[in-house]
């Protein structure tokens, strides 16, 4: 089956990101795959390429990137929720006059409508809230 995962929790603040990754990484062994991970609410902070956890903690950004590489899933970040929390990609940063940006591929900024579309096209939608 195809899965959409929805992540509302910020990295390292709650269990949400860890649990979403653990489910996502376990799906292929059961014959399933993740097609879309959608980050909304505080979950948009998962898309920050500037995150730098201590070396003895799981590196969530590295694992999201590996998930994308392994399962070719989309990593979609709600643009409205992200930009107001300071998570810009290069073009949003330029548009708003900021010198720095935090979000880079394989994460993509997109409208929240993509969450509904992804959910419609998936067999299962699983939400990871704080």
């Amino acid at each position: 089956m195809n899965y959409t995962l929805v992540v509302y929790g910020a990295p390292y603040s709650t269990q949400a990101s860890h649990s979403a990754l653990r489910l996502a990484e376990a799906l292929p062994a059961q014959g399933h795959r993740v097609t879309t991970v959608f980050f909304y609410h505080d979950g948009v902070h998962n898309g920050s390429s500037l995150m730098q956890p201590p070396q003895d903690e799981p590196h969530l950004l590295t694992r999201w990137r590996a998930l994308h590489a392994d399962q070719q899933c989309e990593l979609l970040v709600c643009v409205a929720a992200a930009v107001k929390r300071g998570i810009h990609d290069a073009s949003e940063a330029t548009r708003h006059g900021h010198e720095a940006h935090a979000l880079e591929a394989p994460f993509e900024l997109t409208g929240v409508g993509q969450l509904l579309v992804a959910s419609q096209h998936s067999d299962r939608t699983v939400t990871f809230a704080p």
Binding site: Y40, H41, A80, A81, G111, V112, G113, L115, L116, V117, Q120
Partner: peptide
Amino acid sequence: SSWAREGIEVVLVGGALGVPV
């Protein structure tokens, strides 16, 4: 919190895009 607002925004976006919600 922003939970209610961000949830209601999804409802309106669904309506605007013609996705049944």
